[in-house]
Design a protein around this nucleic acid. Structure first.
Lengths: 334, 334
DNA sequence: CTGAAAGCGCTTACAG
DNA sequence: CTGAAAGCGCTTACAG
């Protein structure tokens, strides 16, 4: 540390730069002034090595390694923006990494060998598939928080939007608009707890209207336009009667609308369509998409805050964030 | 290093783990096996401190701190995805940070105190405004590369798409579609070299058709929907004759289309509209937007590759990446 | 409020 | 091909 030129010892400089209260005000100012003149920056590697804390969080995305340059799920982009902002506000840096589910040495990417103090996990993947890995992380005492469903039996700390209530509210809205046979597009199994919760809301809303849930109207789909398109095609080919589609995500809904239109069906005149997420695209498709808005801004802040508590060994709990309905053209009959 | 259990010294373990060729094959395998069993991970802080290299790149975004949670420029998202991928392929981690132009201690964020080996700069901001800062970085011998215009007089290493040819080609397309009075929406000054290059292409294309460039048809705008909307409103209020809009970015074009439609003008029947970037939204707006596609995939790879060369002190040059035209509904008259 | 000493966990010369 | 020694630049006890 060159700032010995201030006539003090190394530890004093270190303390002054970190704003320790045990440094004389005059001394501190003198040190700060010299540091600024010299454009001095603390070496974070040395500092992290010694203090066992890096001031960095890692964000890990899991998504199917969509062929080539295909777009990132727009919903994740909103989350990324919100998380970045939350980190910056708290003085943390953010390391990001996209993981391919196929990747064997998942944990290696995670561990990050002290490069990060904690990890935020984000992604739609097969939950059962990585549950074992989460348990591995827990066993190693890693600090991490997941975005996804909050379920009673899960070992990990998680933050999620209110998938159940969102599914319930949007289905209720479709029913109020006159739908009687609502198809649900999205995997509704333990492989994808988020969709499962949305589906549970969907089912309960239908039952609350004294209608029957027709299991044949549920078609698996992952969150992509293509998958939504395919699922809708299956629905049409099976010649099942339906007057509305409740899609488990906006991308699925957008693919569904394309498939419907390709088959000469009009939205919303012939079929009502709803999504989930409220990605920026939702307002631009034609017709604009009625959907459930997830509060990504709050989500990012809560994820970061929760992770920081975990790092400080403070007690934390999984949290559920309220959602709101965005009513648009796809469920609005003239 | 606990792996002394392998019966070798610390340096040998270190060498084995890094795949140094000067380790006996048998010894190496034994060490690797033990390391795997112990879930051993090299401490990157110690390693970076000693070797003076962090295996990390930093990505800095500059964008107007758009009010609240407004969306990130979708074009940057494509770049981010591509850069992340390029880093991962080369075994580098990526640190990301959004900078507010107003932020005084820009360089502090940059320096990153050995957390990163080099920096990628991305953003539309006032170029003149941060040119001084770039020079500061150069003076300090920092390794960095910018995304933006490549111009002869600039001190920094830069990678860019072919803004000039893109502007030329899209304008030529508008002319071929019958446009005679083409408005240009976008700041065409040194404050924004990328737009300036696009504008230069626009001007040359018009001149090549033996038409005159009407300076009154150029309206300043930054890359946002709102700005495009406002610029178009100005254009309409001035009651200038125009039959096409050449927007300097897709977001501007989308805002322009909204403004035109709000004034009862039809696209493309009354006015042709073109954008620049080919963000995912471009294919979804109504009518779909004719635009210039930037090859973000190549861009990310070249940015990272260039930065890595800079870090290795190899000679580098600024590079220009070819663009391609995406013809869609907004310039397609029935 | 300040300093001398120790040490975080690696990698780098250097020697063999 | 391998090891003993030194040291990267900080921060943390500990002592005063």
């Amino acid at each position: 540390m060159i700032a010995h030129l201030a006539g003090v010892s190394q530890p004093t400089v270190s303390r002054a730069l970190r704003g320790s209260p045990m440094v004389n005000e005059t001394t501190r100012l003198r040190i700060l002034k010299i540091a600024r003149e010299l454009n001095y920056q603390v070496d974070k590697n040395a500092s992290s090595l010694r203090s066992k804390s890096s001031g960095t969080l890692a964000l890990l995305f899991f998504e199917d390694p969509a062929p080539d340059d295909s777009l990132i799920n727009p919903f994740f982009v909103s989350m990324l923006a919100s998380i970045t902002r939350a980190c910056a506000q708290r003085g943390y840096d953010l390391l990001i990494s996209f993981q391919q589910p196929a990747n064997e040495d998942w944990q290696a990417g995670f561990e990050d060998s002290n490069k990060a103090d904690g990890i935020i996990l984000l992604g739609y993947g097969d939950y059962l598939d990585y549950r074992a890995r989460l348990e591995f992380l827990i066993a190693r005492g890693m600090h991490f928080v997941c975005w996804g469903a909050v379920r009673p039996d899960q070992p990990e700390v998680s933050v999620s939007c209110d998938n159940y209530r969102g599914g319930y509210a949007i289905t209720r809205h479709l029913l109020e608009r006159g739908a009687r046979r609502i198809a649900f597009l999205g995997d509704a199994s333990n492989h994808c707890p988020e969709f499962l919760e949305r589906h549970r809301g969907y089912s309960e809303a239908i039952k609350a209207s004294r209608l029957r849930v027709n299991a044949r109207l549920q078609i698996d789909a992952i969150s992509s336009e293509q998958s939504g398109f395919d699922a809708t095609t299956v629905l049409l080919e099976r010649k099942l009667q339906f007057d509305a589609i409740c899609a488990a995500s906006d991308l699925i809904a957008i693919g569904a609308m394309k498939a419907l239109q390709a088959h000469g069906l009009r939205v919303p005149a012939d079929v009502l369509v709803s999504g989930f997420d409220d990605i920026p695209l939702a307002g631009f498709v034609n017709p604009s998409l009625t959907t459930v808005q997830q509060d990504t801004k709050a989500a990012g802040a809560i994820l970061v805050e929760t992770l920081l508590k975990l790092i400080r060994n403070e007690p934390v709990e999984s949290q559920i964030i309220p959602v709101s309905l965005m009513l648009r053209g796809s469920t609005q009959r003239a």
